[in-house]
Simulated scan of single mutants.
Amino acid sequence: MPTSTPLAPLARLARRVFLAGTAAALLAACATTPQIADEADRDLPPILAQDEIFRPYVKIGTVEVNLKRYGRIEELQQEAEEWARDALSIEASKIGADAVILPEVRIEKDTYIIFPVMYVKGKGTAVKFQ
């Protein structure tokens, strides 16, 4: 009858935790960027650069969006920028804005243990044209 050491159950537990973590990371890496629901059905405010504003406006607020993604940064970066702009438009439409000006999209790269993580932060000024 083989004898087991007191550390054998701990080693099995560590192996199971490692396998579960690896599986979760692979699933997260394969996930897609969250889709903006019904964006085609809405008449969303445009995102305008400073040189595209030709009418007087009133600032009605600042809109901000945040997203945390796991996966390959190179593949997600373009999707993340598009997501941030769409999300800013949706947030601006919720407060009745006609447009979003001075958009800022910042992408920060990091790692969580060994998995790449990307933080997307978007900010803009919601305006109402006069």
Rank of each mutant, 00 (worst) to 15 (best):
M1T: 01
P2V: 07
P2G: 00
P2W: 04
T3S: 01
T5D: 12
T5C: 08
P9E: 07
A11T: 14
R12S: 12
A14N: 14
L19Q: 13
L19D: 14
A20K: 09
A20E: 13
L26C: 14
A29W: 05
C30H: 05
C30D: 07
A31N: 02
A31V: 00
Q35I: 00
Q35E: 03
I36G: 01
A37C: 08
A37M: 09
D38N: 12
E39Y: 08
E39S: 08
A40F: 05
R42N: 12
R42K: 13
L44T: 06
P45C: 04
P46L: 10
I47A: 02
Q50A: 14
D51V: 13
D51W: 11
D51S: 13
E52Y: 08
F54C: 04
F54S: 11
K59G: 10
K59Y: 05
G61F: 02
T62E: 10
T62K: 10
V63W: 12
V65G: 02
L67D: 00
R69A: 01
Y70K: 10
G71A: 08
E75T: 15
Q77G: 03
E82V: 12
E82Q: 15
W83V: 03
A84I: 10
A84N: 01
A84F: 00
A84D: 00
D86N: 08
D86C: 09
A87D: 06
A87I: 04
L88K: 03
I90F: 13
E91N: 06
E91F: 07
A92R: 10
A92Y: 13
I95H: 07
I95G: 10
A97T: 01
D98R: 07
D98E: 09
A99W: 05
V100I: 07
I101G: 05
I101P: 04
L102V: 10
P103G: 06
E104H: 09
E104W: 01
V105A: 04
R106V: 15
I107G: 11
I107D: 03
E108M: 11
E108L: 14
K109Y: 07
K109P: 05
D110W: 08
T111R: 15
Y112V: 15
Y112T: 15
F115R: 13
V117D: 01
V117T: 06
M118D: 02
M118K: 01
Y119T: 09
G122L: 04
G122W: 00
G122R: 04
G124R: 02
T125C: 03
K128Y: 03
F129C: 13
